[in-house]
Amino acid sequence: MEQFKVNNPQVARLICKFIPSQCPFERDIALFGRQILHIPPLCKFNPFYEEFVSLRFRALCYLADECGEDISHLLV
């Protein structure tokens, strides 16, 4: 995935849309309004996590630097 070059604005936007900015697996489990379990973010255990984050960062940089787009709405 490190060799993938982001050189198309549509592809860069798609990458930013599908790769979340934060780990989506962290959860709090509640029962009757009381938290009974907290599941920590497990993304760090995924061997591809760093590569996905790097790809999203390259896509954001491409949109901001090369295309001159406002990426503030993509950072959340």
Rank of each mutant, 00 (worst) to 15 (best):
Asp65Ile: 05
Leu63Phe: 05
Cys61Leu: 11
Ala64Met: 13
Ala30Thr: 13
Asp65Pro: 09
Pro47Ser: 11
Pro40Gly: 00
Cys61Gln: 09
Cys23Gly: 12
Glu66Gly: 11
Glu66Leu: 02
Met1Asn: 12
Pro40Gln: 02
Glu69Pro: 13
Leu55Ile: 05
Lys5Trp: 07
Ala30Cys: 07
Met1Trp: 11
Leu42Asn: 15
Pro41Gly: 05
Phe45Tyr: 12
Cys43Met: 09
Val76Met: 04
Phe48Gln: 09
Pro40His: 02
Val6Asn: 15
Phe4Gly: 00
Glu50Ser: 00
Gln10Pro: 07
Asn46Glu: 08
Pro24Ile: 09
Ser21Gly: 00
Pro41Ser: 11
Asn8Asp: 15
Ile71Pro: 15
Cys67Lys: 07
Leu75Ala: 02
Leu14Ser: 05
Ser72His: 01
Lys5Leu: 01
Gly33Tyr: 05
Arg34Leu: 01
Lys17Cys: 11
Ile19Ser: 12
Leu55Gln: 12
Val11Ser: 05
Cys43Asp: 03
Val76Phe: 04
Phe18Val: 15
Leu60Ser: 03
Glu2Leu: 11
Ile39Ala: 05
Ile71Phe: 08
Leu42Glu: 11
Asn8Tyr: 06
Leu37Trp: 12
Cys16Trp: 09
Gln10Arg: 14
Glu51Gln: 14
Phe18Tyr: 11
Ile19Asp: 15
Phe48Met: 10
Pro20Arg: 08
Val53Gly: 06
Phe48Val: 03
Pro47Leu: 08
Ile36Phe: 09
Phe4His: 13
Val6Gly: 11
Asn7Pro: 02
Met1Phe: 10
Gln22Tyr: 13
Ile29Lys: 14
Ala64Val: 05
Leu37Asp: 02
Leu31Gln: 04
Glu69Thr: 01
Phe18Pro: 10
Pro9Asp: 14
Ile29Ser: 03
Phe52Asn: 07
Leu60His: 15
Asn46Asp: 10
Ser54Gly: 04
Asn8Glu: 13
Gly68Arg: 07
Leu55Tyr: 06
Ala12Gln: 12
Phe4Ser: 08
Cys43Thr: 08
Gln10Phe: 15
Cys16Arg: 10
His38Lys: 08
Glu2Trp: 14
Lys5His: 09
Cys67Met: 06
Arg13Leu: 10
Pro9Gln: 14
Phe48Ile: 06
Asn7Val: 06
Phe32Tyr: 05
Cys23Phe: 02
Val76Asp: 14
Glu69Gly: 05
Leu14Ile: 12
Leu74Glu: 04
Lys44Asn: 01
Asp70Glu: 04
Phe25Val: 04
Phe57Ile: 01
Phe25Arg: 08
Phe18Cys: 14
Ile29Trp: 15
Pro40Asp: 00
Leu14His: 14
Pro41Trp: 12
Phe45Asp: 05
Glu66Pro: 07
Leu14Asp: 15
Phe45Ile: 01
Phe25Ser: 08
Lys44Trp: 05
Arg27Pro: 00
Phe4Ile: 10
Lys17Met: 10
Pro41Ala: 07
Gly33Trp: 03
Glu2Gly: 10
Pro40Thr: 00
Phe18Glu: 15
Phe52Thr: 09
Cys43Ser: 08
Val53Tyr: 03
Cys61His: 05
Lys5Phe: 09
Leu60Cys: 09
Pro20His: 03
Asn46Gln: 00
Asp65Glu: 12
Phe57Lys: 02
Pro47Phe: 10
Gln3Asn: 14
